[in-house]
Design a protein around this nucleic acid. Structure first.
Lengths: 153, 153
DNA sequence: AAAAAATCCGTAAATTTTATGGTTAATTGT
DNA sequence: ACAATTAACCATAAAATTTACGGATTTTTT
């Protein structure tokens, strides 16, 4: 699992923060040649360390101001119920993330909508129509103190 | 706020999923010229719609297997206490996200560590040493059903 | 309807990515 | 210890992409 050396880790740290860096810029920071950096990054992608490269948007500028975390409890925990819920909820574009959890509820959803009205519509007309839901408890983001996609390395 | 036309939205949708697409590839999908696509993307970055471009890593491959969501309640809600907590918690690399929330607790943290032992160490030696914390309740991710950084557009 | 602004595109220059071959350093087997 | 093999690194050149520029077309404004 860990055949990453210090150079690989530095590259991953940099690309987690800014994947628009050129190989030239990285090579300068790491005191390696462009060719070496290029080969390292190719390997990190091939071996699956880098899953993908994405653009992160400003949620306020695109009018997705309301972020909710919802805790979902299901009626039962048969494979059918769990799989059915996961499959259906993943189809909703408002649901950015879905995690099955330990503890007193079953799933955490991260839901992005434009405002409370849109959230309400999503909740009543989409989420609450799914079968086997016992309760949904939602918490809303007031402000974003830290928002990082980078894992500590 | 919304001076985005259909072409801009299509570009943002594509780049949210895969920012490694070349202008050429995008121009083909959108039936526009390379120059047009390039100019659009430059504007979307300049105007702040695209905050940044990042590499998303495979958390399992880099041994950050344990993701926790922690609900934090503080002793009081004076500006000093809130600002102090936010400033300190943001310094921990284990804390990938921190949101101030509505409802019965104050903050949600997303915490990434290698395993339960590392989480425990973070909790006892870092998080719990911060002043003004009343309670921390943590929930752990069993499995990741959907994990998307893309906002619906 | 004319003027102004915005959108779009082709082309060329600058830069970056990618491929190649060879050198040096590290690892392995005996 | 030492030859053989492998891995890491790098310079260079070719291919591809990004970026800058000028002009044409369309849309909007007055």
């Amino acid at each position: 699992m860990n055949d990453l050396d210090a150079t690989d880790l530095e590259i991953l740290k940099l690309l987690q923060q800014n994947a628009s860096l050129t190989n030239k810029e990285i090579s300068y920071k790491l005191h390696k040649s462009i060719a070496t950096v290029h080969e390292r990054i190719r390997r990190l992608k091939d071996q699956g360390y880098i899953k993908r490269v994405v653009a992160i948007l400003d949620s306020k500028k695109i009018n997705r101001n309301l972020i909710a975390f919802s805790h979902v409890l299901l009626n039962d925990h048969t494979a059918n119920t769990l799989n059915g819920f996961e499959a259906e909820v993943a189809k909703f574009p408002e649901v950015m993330e879905c995690f099955q959890m330990t503890g007193t509820f079953d799933f955490i959803l991260r839901i992005a909508t434009s405002d409370m009205e849109a959230y309400h519509h999503f909740y009543r007309n989409k989420l609450a129509t799914l079968p086997n839901i016992t309760t949904v408890q939602s918490f809303f983001v007031l402000s974003e103190t830290k928002s990082d996609t980078a894992y500590p390395l």
